[in-house]
């Protein structure tokens, strides 16, 4: 009898214990579910924003392209949407964007690559500790400040060299854009170089190579795809840069490939027009979105390209 009793009791205790555990488990699962949902929502905010922006751009541009044919948009050499005789050729704006970005890259790529090589291969840890935060500071300067830096410092300095250079031109802002994207280019290429395994460097040294030969002939080639990815992301940043060009490049759409001339970029046009009082739904208003869509497609393409390159470089080792 006592044995049965104990057995029964034992079973009972076990059961209630099991039930309690199940309850706890359910509560935990509920809590986890809520937290997970919250995290998912937070993550979805950025996705939703991107999707919404693209949707709005597309929707408003559709209205624009109902009036302006795609052919005119891409072949007309004038961009005068607010004139009595409106022309809607994106080429002048595109040229402005391309020229300022190219000037920026001509500054950022050589300076950035050399700096990254220095930081990754030559700088002492202490030197790196000083330089890296300074570079990050460069990235924290508001773009308006860069704009006036281009207008009031860089352009006048360039005018010392070329007195004919107009006060508004694409060269000055282009150079400043280059300086702006330097931190990005440097830090991404430096990461790529530091990811090169030490055993490759040792292999080079063992062949009798010098420090410089090792950096240049082994480390840089080994990090190529990462470095190129850094350039590509730099391009997409340069293409999207707004304030500097709006302030210092002049705001008249001008189809020219000469950086010494003033011109407007896609982004500059957008701020310029958006600041005026355009009636909602007018063609001028919609032209903003068409220009924005071109810009979005460009930066999007460069971003994807950059990420593809980065992925490829990760797979090397």
């Amino acid at each position: 009898m006592p044995t049965v009793m104990t057995e029964g009791k034992a079973i009972l205790i076990d059961k209630s214990g099991g039930m309690e555990a199940a309850g706890r488990r359910r509560a935990r699962r509920r809590r986890e579910f809520v937290i997970e949902g919250g995290l998912l929502l937070a993550a979805l905010v950025s996705v939703a924003t991107t999707v919404t922006i693209l949707a709005v751009l597309l929707f408003e541009s559709l209205g624009f392209f109902e009036i302006v044919s795609l052919l005119d948009f891409f072949t007309d050499t004038l961009w005068t949407p607010l004139f009595d005789d409106p022309h809607y050729g994106i080429l002048p704006l595109l040229a402005g964007t391309v020229v300022t970005s190219v000037v920026g890259l001509l500054v950022a790529i050589p300076v950035g690559t050399v700096s990254a090589i220095y930081l990754s291969e030559f700088a002492s840890p202490r030197m790196r500790e000083i330089i890296k935060p300074t570079l990050e500071l460069l990235g924290a300067v508001p773009t308006v400040v860069y704009g006036y830096f281009a207008l009031l410092v860089v352009t006048p300095a360039l005018q010392l060299l070329w007195p004919d250079l107009p006060g508004f031109n694409m060269l000055g802002p282009g150079i400043v854009i280059g300086i702006m994207i330097l931190p990005l280019v440097i830090s991404l290429s430096e990461d790529a170089m530091r990811a090169v395994p030490m055993v490759l460097r040792e292999g080079s040294y063992a062949m009798g190579a010098t420090h410089l030969e090792t950096a240049w002939r082994v480390v840089v080639p080994a990090a190529t795809s990462g470095i190129v990815a850094a350039y590509v992301l730099g391009v997409s940043r340069a293409v999207g840069e707004t304030m500097v060009v709006a302030i210092a490049a002049g705001q008249n759409p001008n189809l020219t490939w000469n950086p010494m001339e003033p011109a407007a970029t896609i982004t500059a046009y957008i701020v310029q027009v958006a600041l005026g009082d355009l009636p909602h739904g007018s063609i001028g208003y919609r032209s903003i979105f068409a220009a924005g869509l071109v810009l979005a497609v460009m930066t999007f393409a460069f971003n994807i390209l950059g990420h593809v390159m980065r992925k490829r470089f990760r797979e090397v080792y």
């Binding site: 395994p197 490759l200 040792e202 292999g203 080079s204 082994v218 080639p221 080994a222």
Partner: peptide, 9 residues
């Protein structure tokens, strides 16, 4: 070396 370390060339 212990692990083959051909250069990316």
């Amino acid at each position: 070396f212990q692990k083959p370390n051909p250069f990316p060339k």
